[in-house]
């Protein structure tokens, strides 16, 4: 089944009968759609980033090429750097938390037999829910400052209510909690699949050789689940960089600009404010960061694992 890792190299899966017509009919629509719906926006945004394109300008203006002006503005723009910092902080907050929770719960899940399927099914739930709804339910309702249950419970234990949405720091924490609530499940399921791919006899063998539980875990399990963990981490990191929906619903980027992400800033300037040019330059900045980061990540993890 799909959940089990499969290894094919020895198996023959290609046709020997040539069939050039169908070969292209099957592939071309998908390639064409992706190419056009990917290439057009990518090229158009690149074009827009070098112009002064604007949706809401009043009067007759011709669109001008402005060279690197948008990027210069970007680099000197304190608001933009603030959103960049927020995005990185958010990513650094949620991804490790999800990894730790994911690993803990996946290990626990791998350790039991009865009820495993039940838990696995239940853990799938948050992934099915729209981020908008998650942010509303978990964020707006639970973190509500006056009479939300979290503050209510804190108060009943004699603590002060936490200013979840009015303090810059706590607002970020609340957003992170929402993301962790929703996406830890992804880590759990990925890591569980990885753990189930670790042959139990290897573990037993290590134990017989005198390694204790922890040593066996580090020496046997960790290296074997490493590739999947790395892939899962990369997926989560990229998604965390793109965070926007939960912020729109919970804080709108506030208080001040304390929780505004880069993507939210792009929506705010580009779509809402109509400044397509500046919005595009920010989008490109994000794209370039993601490319560099993703490339470096893949390169480094491949190399690290190759050495092991």
């Amino acid at each position: 089944m799909a959940t089990e890792p499969q290894i094919y190299p020895s198996k023959r899966f290609r046709f020997e009968i040539k069939d050039n017509l169908w070969k292209w009919i099957f592939l071309v629509p998908a390639v064409a759609i992706i190419l056009i719906l990917l290439a057009v926006p990518v090229l158009w945004t690149l074009y827009a980033a070098f112009t002064d394109l604007h949706l809401y300008r009043i009067g007759d203006f011709d669109t001008k090429f402005v060279g690197l002006a948008n990027f210069e503005k970007l680099l000197s723009n304190r608001s933009f750097w603030r959103t960049a910092r927020n995005t990185v902080v958010f990513m650094l907050g949620v991804v490790p938390a999800q990894l730790i929770i994911g690993l803990t719960v996946a290990l626990a899940l791998n350790n039991i037999t009865r009820g495993q399927k039940l838990f696995r099914t239940w853990f799938l739930m948050p992934l099915m829910v729209s981020p908008v709804v998650v942010s509303f339910i978990v964020g707006r309702m639970l973190f509500q400052e006056d009479i939300g249950p979290i503050n209510d419970i804190l108060r009943s234990f004699g603590f002060e209510g936490v200013p979840w949405l009015t303090s810059p720091t706590w607002a970020m924490v609340a957003l992170m909690a929402i993301d962790v609530w929703q996406w830890s499940s992804f880590m759990i399921l990925m890591l569980l699949a990885a753990l189930q791919g670790v042959p139990p006899d290897l573990h037993e063998a290590a134990r017989v050789d005198g390694a204790n539980q922890l040593q066996a875990f580090w020496r046997i399990t960790v290296p074997l689940i490493m590739p999947i963990t790395m892939t899962a981490l990369l997926i989560r990191i990229i998604d965390a960089f793109k965070v926007v929906e939960i912020i729109m619903v919970l804080t709108g980027g506030g208080p001040g600009q304390a929780t505004e992400s880069v993507t939210l800033a792009i929506y705010r300037t580009g779509v809402k404010g109509g400044d397509l040019a500046f919005g595009s330059s920010q989008a490109y900045f994000l794209l370039i960061v993601l490319m560099i980061f993703g490339g470096a990540y893949l390169f480094l993890t491949r190399r690290a694992m190759g050495k092991d």
């Binding site: 809401y56 208080p255 001040g256 600009q257 304390a258 404010g273 109509g274």
Partner: peptide, 23 residues
């Protein structure tokens, strides 16, 4: 005088930073 959404956004951003003691 045009561009209201953007001017508004810029002002609210700055003022809310002051209200949140960020600046």
């Amino acid at each position: 005088f045009g561009g209201w959404v953007q001017y508004r956004d810029a002002l609210e951003l700055g003022v809310s930073k002051a209200l949140a003691n960020e600046l």
